[in-house]
Measured scan of single mutants.
Amino acid sequence: EEWMVEKALMVRTGLGARQIESYRQGAWIEGVHFKRVSPSGESTLRGTTWYNYPEINKFIR
Protein backbone atom coordinates (compact mmCIF):
# COMPACT_ATOMS: atom_id res chain seq x y z
CA GLU A 1 0.00 0.00 0.00
CA GLU A 2 1.58 3.22 -1.11
CA TRP A 3 -1.19 5.77 -0.56
CA MET A 4 -3.64 5.53 2.35
CA VAL A 5 -6.13 7.68 4.23
CA GLU A 6 -5.49 9.00 7.74
CA LYS A 7 -7.17 6.14 9.62
CA ALA A 8 -5.00 3.54 7.89
CA LEU A 9 -1.90 5.65 8.53
CA MET A 10 -2.80 5.83 12.21
CA VAL A 11 -3.04 2.04 12.37
CA ARG A 12 0.27 1.51 10.51
CA THR A 13 2.31 4.13 12.40
CA GLY A 14 0.65 4.50 15.78
CA LEU A 15 0.48 8.27 15.26
CA GLY A 16 -2.61 10.12 16.46
CA ALA A 17 -4.70 12.53 14.40
CA ARG A 18 -3.11 15.59 16.02
CA GLN A 19 0.39 14.25 15.44
CA ILE A 20 -0.38 13.61 11.78
CA GLU A 21 -1.81 17.12 11.43
CA SER A 22 1.31 18.58 13.06
CA TYR A 23 3.63 16.71 10.68
CA ARG A 24 1.45 17.69 7.71
CA GLN A 25 1.55 21.37 8.65
CA GLY A 26 5.24 21.37 9.49
CA ALA A 27 7.66 18.76 8.23
CA TRP A 28 5.92 16.73 5.53
CA ILE A 29 5.93 17.98 1.95
CA GLU A 30 2.68 18.13 -0.01
CA GLY A 31 3.00 15.99 -3.13
CA VAL A 32 5.63 13.78 -1.48
CA HIS A 33 4.32 12.74 1.94
CA PHE A 34 0.67 13.63 1.38
CA LYS A 35 -1.72 14.92 -1.26
CA ARG A 36 -5.29 16.15 -1.38
CA VAL A 37 -7.48 14.70 -4.11
CA SER A 38 -11.10 15.52 -4.93
CA PRO A 39 -13.55 12.86 -6.15
CA SER A 40 -13.00 14.21 -9.67
CA GLY A 41 -9.28 13.40 -9.37
CA GLU A 42 -8.06 17.00 -9.27
CA SER A 43 -5.73 18.38 -6.59
CA THR A 44 -7.65 20.53 -4.15
CA LEU A 45 -7.52 21.88 -0.61
CA ARG A 46 -10.92 20.36 0.22
CA GLY A 47 -10.43 16.83 -1.09
CA THR A 48 -9.57 13.65 0.75
CA THR A 49 -6.04 13.72 2.14
CA TRP A 50 -3.97 10.71 1.11
CA TYR A 51 -0.68 9.80 2.79
CA ASN A 52 2.32 8.13 1.16
CA TYR A 53 3.30 5.50 3.72
CA PRO A 54 6.69 4.53 2.18
CA GLU A 55 7.82 8.18 2.04
CA ILE A 56 6.60 8.85 5.59
CA ASN A 57 8.41 5.72 6.77
CA LYS A 58 11.64 6.98 5.12
CA PHE A 59 11.17 10.35 6.83
CA ILE A 60 10.77 8.71 10.24
CA ARG A 61 13.89 6.58 9.81
Rank of each mutant, 00 (worst) to 15 (best):
Q25L: 13
Y53H: 04
I56T: 01
F59W: 15
M10Y: 03
G31Y: 05
K35Y: 06
W3N: 00
G14I: 02
T48A: 09
W28L: 02
R36P: 06
L9G: 00
N52Q: 02
Q19V: 06
L45R: 08
A27P: 11
Y51W: 03
E1T: 09
Y51T: 00
S40Q: 11
S38E: 12
F34W: 14
L15F: 04
Q19L: 07
E30S: 04
M10P: 01
K35L: 09
G41R: 07
G31C: 05
E1K: 07
Y23M: 08
S40D: 14
L45W: 06
R24A: 07
W50M: 13
R46F: 14
E30I: 05
K58S: 08
Y51M: 00
L45K: 11
T13K: 02
V11P: 03
E30Q: 05
F59R: 03
H33T: 00
Y23T: 01
F34Y: 13
M10W: 04
G14R: 05
F34R: 01
V37R: 06
T44M: 11
T49F: 15
Q25M: 13
I20M: 04
L15Q: 01
T13M: 06
R61Y: 09
V37L: 09
R61F: 10
K58G: 05
I20A: 01
E6S: 06
N57D: 15
I29S: 05
S40E: 14
R12Q: 08
E1V: 08
N57T: 14
P54V: 14
E42T: 09
Y23G: 03
E6W: 06
A17S: 11
P54E: 12
V5K: 12
G41M: 08
R24W: 03
A8P: 04
V37F: 08
I60R: 03
G26A: 09
E1A: 10
K7R: 09
G41T: 09
Y53A: 04
M10L: 05
G31W: 05
W28G: 00
E2S: 07
S43D: 13
F59D: 03
P54D: 11
G26L: 10
K58A: 10
G31P: 02
W3P: 00
R61W: 10
E30P: 06
E1F: 08
P39F: 10
V11Q: 14
W28E: 00
W28Y: 00
N57I: 15
G14C: 06
P54R: 09
R46C: 13
H33Q: 03
F34V: 03
G16E: 12
L9P: 00
R46N: 15
I60P: 03
G41A: 09
F34N: 01
L45Y: 05
I29L: 07
E21S: 07
Q19N: 04
A27S: 10
I29R: 06
E21N: 07
H33D: 02
R46I: 14
E21K: 10
R36M: 14
N52I: 02
P54F: 12
W3Y: 02
E21V: 06
R36E: 14
F34A: 01
G26I: 08
V5F: 07
G26D: 11
A8K: 07
M10C: 05
W50S: 04
R18S: 13
V5T: 15
R18C: 13
N52T: 01
R36W: 15
N52L: 02
I60A: 03
E55H: 04
T44Y: 10
K7E: 15
L9T: 01
S22W: 14
R46W: 12
T13D: 01
F34Q: 01
G26Q: 10
A27C: 14
I20F: 03
R36S: 14
A27G: 09
Q25K: 13
Q25S: 10
L15E: 01
T44F: 09
S43R: 07
R61E: 14
G26Y: 13
R46D: 15
I29C: 05
E1R: 07
P39W: 09
Y23A: 04
P39K: 09
M10H: 04
V32F: 07
R61S: 12
T44S: 13
V32E: 04
M4N: 01
L45F: 07
S40F: 11
R36I: 15
S40R: 08
R18P: 08
S40K: 10
K58I: 08
V11Y: 10
M10E: 05
A8C: 12
L45C: 11
P39C: 11
L9R: 01
A27D: 09
L45T: 13
